[in-house]
Design a protein around this nucleic acid. Structure first.
Lengths: 218, 218
DNA sequence: CTTATTTTTTAGTCTAATCTAAAAAAATAT
DNA sequence: ATATTTTTTTAGATTAGACTAAAAAATAAG
């Protein structure tokens, strides 16, 4: 049995080391998890003991195949729950993280399968990050900041970069919501503002807004 | 902060001692929770320390007002999650318990409020047990076994007593489902079978079936 | 290439929750 | 009312996870 704490370590190592393939330093993990390096050393030994991680003293940690799969499964759960919280329970994007952080540790294959189905097999979470499938494979999502799109390009609004309450409220007021198709019509040289088409209405957004919106293209 | 383990003890004491008001013996708790009496003693001291329980050596435990409220809140979460699992994710009744057992410990007021709303403020869980409100008050549910109803009576099918897979499948086959209005037409003296009206169709059910179905009246 | 600095590990504590075995109190039976 | 049985508590260990402080290894600087 993989404990909750072990799952959290696996997740962190996965994120820090390119899907857990690259070796990650003890200190990096400690900093990320806001814990002490000595605690990390202890845990990392345990993960190696359980064949979830490869660990050589003074040389950092990477994940084994099983470790990577376990980490991906936790990430899958986290992101599916985030979709549930936002799409079904109407949480706003900035409120979901800590709750999903708890829900990701619920142990039940069946629960996640049924949740996945209930949500209609989403491929991205509310922040625009890919949701891995049961085998731990991530769909290649080509998401790009709106500010990086040329005029003429279009894409689906799949996430925000910085999800402050005020920004989300602004989006709400402009009737821009997740899943909307956005087309870039014109980029204004002088102030980097962008004219876009959303829900068949024209809108002008500031550069700041444009650097906060992720579009998914095909 | 109340730990997961503390919550489980509170819940057990609540259930064993008439909402936690009556004192419950150490042994009774140990047996119910499949743990050792010595572990119970330890925990019960801690609960008393935190003013969640009243405890006098050798005289059993009851809950304080705060303890009762905390227990009721855990039960509320458990039952709301059960409704979610059955109504939304299409779990069958006998599969939900252990998952709800985990979900009940997720800490987020907001989550439960929104879940409650999402489920349309249910008053009973899939087993026909009342869901307490935020103040810990249970709606008085007058649920009765179908076998105890006189002919002429009617009620809403709110739960089952023993939820074996085969029984649930039988109900499915007969097109009897949760929330259906059932009217008792006639009770056969000789074999205790009962003729009922469900979804405007006549049905004859055995005594065994009748003792497994809970009806809610008014 | 030796010294200083940083990183990582080890050794020893601590807390929460559990357990076993023994002691103490309460309940029951003779 | 005394002995026996049952229940409950205490004492002492154990395990997971985290911490502090000191030691060891690796890295950087002169």
């Amino acid at each position: 049995m993989v404990t909750q704490s072990e799952e959290n370590y696996l997740k962190t190592i996965y994120h820090l080391g390119k899907q857990g393939v690259e070796a990650v330093s003890t200190n990096a993990i400690a900093e990320q998890m806001e814990t002490k390096a000595s605690s990390v050393t202890d845990m990392v030994k345990k993960l190696a003991e359980k064949d979830l991680a490869n660990y050589v003293k003074y040389q950092g940690v990477s994940l084994t195949k099983v470790g990577r799969l376990t980490a991906a499964s936790v990430i899958r759960k986290h992101r599916l729950w985030e979709v549930f919280l936002v799409n079904k329970l109407k949480f706003s994007w900035d409120e979901v993280h800590e709750v999903a952080e708890q829900l990701e540790h619920i142990k039940s294959e069946q629960l996640i399968d049924k949740l996945d189905e209930f949500l209609d097999f989403p491929k991205v979470d509310p922040h625009g990050d890919a949701i891995p499938d049961k085998e731990g494979n991530f769909a290649k999502i080509s998401k790009k900041l709106l500010s990086e799109c040329a005029s003429g390009e279009e894409g689906i609004f799949v996430g925000v970069k910085d999800s402050s309450a005020s920004f989300l409220q602004y989006l709400d007021k402009q009737h821009i919501s997740l899943g909307d198709k956005i087309k870039i019509l014109h980029r204004e040289e002088f102030d980097q503002s962008v004219e876009i088409m959303v829900n068949s209405s024209l809108l002008n957004i500031s550069q700041k807004t444009a650097t906060n919106i992720y579009l998914q293209q095909k």
